[in-house]
Amino acid sequence: MRKRSRLPMFVTLGVLLFLYAPILVLILYSFNDSRYPGAWQGFTLKWYRMLLEANSVEARDIWRATRNTLVVAFAATIISMVFGTMAAWAMYRFRSRLQSLHQMLVYAPLVVPDILMGISLLMLFVNMSVNLGLTTIVVSHTTFCISYVALVVLGRLQDFDHTLVDAARDLGANGFAVCVRILLPLLGPGIAAGGLLAFTLSVDDFVITFFTAGPGSTTLPVQVYSMMRHGTPTLINALSVIFIIVTFSVVIFSQRVLQRKNNTHPHI
């Protein structure tokens, strides 16, 4: 028997190391007894204590930023899933002269530089005398998230067999039934994928958020970036470790659930 090459294994290990070594270093340094990363000063749990201590001045801004980030991300995701799907359906279904304008409007946020969007949204809000806060961040995030959802759902619609809708209509389904029993189940994975993408982008966004945030609505990326430049990055390490634990738990949990589902419905 021919000996199998070991190369793929090494490549895999190398890639895994490349991906996870920074995270391991981050976890390690969250236990470092120093305000600065880089020099190991001994083991401590003080950053975790500081973070988890109720209402401590050091940590409350970070928790506020975390809560802001999550509120914004969930709201922007849900709204953009609805509007993005509607936009994709309109682009798929209707061809008119206005459609090219619509497409341009949907694609624009993908190519417009963040800084331009941030500043112009800020000016818009200021001219409308809207108070800056979480609502303005949600509106701004929704603006660019819609484009991503629309694109993903549109991709899904390209494979969509429209005769299914005709067949359903033929059998007496009204618009609502077609939407709920044909369209949504078939587009579901696309909408969900778009929503996940929107969620990630919203949690990640720095530039647009910076300009559209108001007093008290600083989000985590803005907070973390400023703390890296000026402040106590080690506290951020501890927060990241908590996040990593939560994220991995969610991933493991959802895989368990999916596996169980897959066993009952092999083609979900």
Binding site: L122, N131, S226
Partner: peptide, 22 residues
Amino acid sequence: VYDVYDSNEAMYAKLLSGARGY
């Protein structure tokens, strides 16, 4: 309530555009 920026220029640009509440 303590909000943060990371450079003079970014803070200036934002306030000059009319951001209020601080």
